[in-house]
Design a protein around this nucleic acid. Structure first.
Length: 480
RNA sequence: GGCCCCAUCGUCUAACGGUCAGGACACCACUCUUUCAAGGUGGUAAUACGGGUUCGAUUCCCGUUGGGGUCACCA
């Protein structure tokens, strides 16, 4: 009986939680849930300059929002520097690492000199050739030094759970610094030391770490530790095929939260970026996702983040969600618009009317807002072009609609009665129903898309509907 | 540039030597609603290229091209 797997998500709090990181976290979480393993959250805050408490909070909030509950942590890497240092010094004591007295400036000069060459820069190990007496002398002088790991000059390979065998050659690898002059550890040292200490069995991380893996593997061996399974998941790219970054617009998990994406939809969509259950499955509940997940199903090539498909998926989740669950987020959005609607219960018929026609919570809120308050009305692209297309016909239709509808009393203002009246007028005038209904739709909502017009009229109410028809006709007259 | 990874419709993907190369988003058409959407039905659209291996390659091997990642006393 083997021990349960232990996986980790290890973001550094130097920025927000971006969708690539969120997906890495999701895969780790799914793997842990699937295998009965443990999902550890580790905050890699060893870069004191760029790490902030605020970023940490944003990352934690993002994970919680996505429903990715961790089992251990958050563990802060910065709290374990003593161990990192001890591991580095052990390598030094065992002769697997050496002191390097080269300054940043010297290294920079060396780097410049080789940059033009056919190969990448590699430290020439000059300090490794220093006689022991010289090292001792420099130390008594108090010369600052870093500790460098002596990279074995042999092939380093591993069997990656998504890529298969990946091989690097020791001759291409640099003697990496593992401890800075100030005694703080460098990333690769800290990670290996932590993953060993936390008994991590599966390292599931982004493809951008592939080049770190041979270095870390060498460190594991030098430390005599068991080597975990590595799984490098593909990157997420923007629509232009370039690595997803801020210039692509929304890349932070929080951005999608603000856009009105539901956590379940985001999770489902992210899972399908670079992973497939193998059948033609798309919409999957949390339990199905967990049941179907496997490392084998992870794609090797990078995936392009398609916001349109995310919104489609969100629309699917939205229309399945009971209206009660939409009450709170929609109300919050309306509050932001400073809209007065009385009690939340008032919103129910409005949400019901627009829910199936929306892709995001923001869509829902905006449509509800327009129905509640004519000041929220804004002509959209299609509305504008309809008016242009109909010309005078639009004006006539509004007048006709107003005449027809004002004949209906407040007490009779029900969608059945409204539809009957409108049909009646259409017949008398020899029009098509759409000729009358589309203008009403645009006048009332600014958009060409809504629930059936008679229902829209009922929801908006008699006086507001008539006022909007008049206002639309007037503003049209003014603009001509 | 060195090293590493990768390559099926525009996008996300299925296929683990034999399929008319399937599904989803997007797009188009039709349909339903005496209305716009949604829904339903159908359609356009892909194995980057060149060599092998094989009776047979999307699938295995090699090369080319293209893309991505990475080369810090950052993580």
């Amino acid at each position: 009986m083997s021990t349960p797997p232990r996986v980790r998500f290890a973001p550094s709090p130097t920025g927000y939680l971006h969708v690539g990181g969120a997906r890495t976290a999701l895969f780790n979480w799914l793997y842990a849930r699937k295998t009965g393993g443990v999902f550890v959250l580790r905050i890699e805050d060893t870069d004191q300059q760029r790490s902030t408490e605020e970023n940490t909070q944003v990352i934690l909030d993002g994970l919680r929002w996505l429903g990715l509950q961790w089992d251990e942590g958050p563990v802060f890497q910065g709290e374990a520097v003593a161990r990192h240092r001890a591991d580095a010094e052990r390598l030094l004591a065992e002769g697997k690492a050496y002191r390097c007295f080269c300054t940043k400036e010297e290294l920079e000069a060396q780097r410049k000199a080789t940059l033009k060459g056919a190969e990448a820069f590699k430290y020439d190990r000059r300090c490794d050739r220093l006689p022991a007496a010289e090292v001792a002398a420099r130390m008594t002088q108090g010369m600052p030094f870093v500790i460098r790991f002596r990279m074995p000059q042999e092939d380093i390979a591993w069997n990656d759970a998504v890529h298969g065998t990946i091989t690097f050659h020791g001759r291409d690898l640099d003697d990496l610094i593992i401890l800075r002059a100030d005694g703080t550890p460098i990333y690769n040292m800290a990670v290996v030391s932590d993953d060993i200490a936390m008994r991590i069995t599966h390292v599931i991380r982004g493809d951008d770490h592939i080049s770190n893996t041979p270095k870390q593997l060498a460190l594991y061996r030098a430390l005599g530790a068991a080597i975990p399974t590595f799984a490098h998941v593909p990157m997420i790219l923007g629509a232009d095929g370039k690595k997803l970054s801020k210039r692509h617009g929304a890349t932070a998990v929080g951005d999608y939260q603000n856009l009105g994406i539901l956590p379940a939809a985001m999770r489902n969509f992210l899972a399908l970026l670079g992973w497939s259950p193998g059948e033609d499955r798309e919409i999957m509940a949390e339990a199905e996702l967990i049941a179907l997940f496997s490392l084998e199903g992870i794609q090797k090539k990078p995936a392009v983040f398609d916001t349109t498909k995310l919104e489609w998926m969100n629309g699917q989740y939205l229309s399945l969600l009971p209206t009660e669950e939409l009450l709170e987020p929609v109300a919050r959005e309306l509050d932001r618009l400073n809209l007065n609607y009385g009690s939340r219960e008032v919103l129910v018929p409005y949400i019901n009317a627009v829910k199936a026609r929306s892709r995001t919570l923001l869509d829902v809120a905006r449509q509800v807002a327009v129905r509640l308050d004519s000041h929220q009305l804004e002509l959209d692209e299609k509305g504008r072009s309809l008016i242009k297309q109909m010309g005078d016909g639009y004006f006539r239709s509004l007048a006709l609609a107003h005449e027809t509808l004002s004949a209906i009393s407040e007490g009779e203002w029900r969608h059945e009665r409204i539809l009957a009246a409108l049909k009646d007028t259409v017949e008398k005038e020899g029009l098509k129903l759409g000729d009358l209904l589309q203008p009403i739709r645009v006048a009332l909502t600014g958009s060409t898309v809504s629930e059936p017009v008679n229902e829209l009229l009922e929801v908006v109410g008699r006086s507001s509907a008539l006022a909007r028809l008049t206002a639309a006709a007037r503003s049209l007259a003014n603009s001509q």
